[in-house]
Nucleic acid binder design. Sequence first.
DNA 1: CTTTGAATGTAGCATAGGCTACATTGTGTG
DNA 2: CACACAATGTAGCCTATGCTACATTCAAAG
Lengths: 158, 158
Amino acid sequence: MSYVISLSIVFVPISIATMATGVDPKSAARRHERVRKQHSDELAQDYVEAIHELIESGKPARVTDLQSVFGVSHVSVVRALQRFEKRGLLDRSSGDGVQLTDLGRKMATEAAARHQLVVDFLRKLGVSHAQANADAEGLEHHLSDESLAALRKFVDGE
Amino acid sequence: MSYVISLSIVFVPISIATMATGVDPKSAARRHERVRKQHSDELAQDYVEAIHELIESGKPARVTDLQSVFGVSHVSVVRALQRFEKRGLLDRSSGDGVQLTDLGRKMATEAAARHQLVVDFLRKLGVSHAQANADAEGLEHHLSDESLAALRKFVDGE
DNA sequence: CTTTGAATGTAGCATAGGCTACATTGTGTG
DNA sequence: CACACAATGTAGCCTATGCTACATTCAAAG
């Protein structure tokens, strides 16, 4: 079998037919592929965000601290940190807790800004603070720039 | 337009202290745990939704069809279907394509309603149809009942 | 009737992300 | 000093999701 893989990640507007039905296979495949990519970055963003928050509040970001933030075993934390260190997001060589690289810090501040925007947005929609925070944790990784801009516009008074 | 909103999301209360700071480790752990649970159900919902759409539009839901919907190899589809069959969501014993069980159909219609609500909501915020559909794919799995109700209120004229 | 191509399934491998069990190391206290 | 506990790391196992390569089956075409 020979596959002809289309590398056209070019922007292709969804056809009228698709817009109505939502069942066009090609665009559906593109959407699902995008979600898979988002997932592969979610944990990294959550980690750098948590590490950033700890450091900003004067506390070291140790394995134990992250373990209680994420509610997983210390082993899962260690292995996640190993992966993210390989990806150049953080540095575990210094003594007390992990440090973020410039790249990690950039990712962290962007993630924090997105998170806050989503929380503010949900609050303005009338969602309780607790639920807004909880939902933002899942939502923040799946918003396009276009949707983020729309949320911002709404939050900033519409 | 009226929506049938899923009532299936677990309610997790969050303490007042948490609400203020957002950094309380225990509530953070609860939030992250909830997101992990949502992830473990995402693919199942996407599959039953896709299968339901195919069947509703008169086409059989075969491995090949789902392969092109999700943009993965046929092997990934087969193994996903095996898992979901074990979970009682679908039935592969009948001849032409998979069938949904009652449970699978219920999950599919709820997921479809959520998806449509998110799309309509983003559209009302000014997001393009193409991007609204794309973003909804990721967002729809991470909204609490409370947030879904807020979205519906906004869509229905506020 | 044979060949061929599409659909489906299996075998086996990779990575991400969970886990428990065990080893090491450092620190503080009886 | 020695024992104990907390923090960290490693070994090894699990499931979910991807993949390629190979096997089977069936229908359509020559």
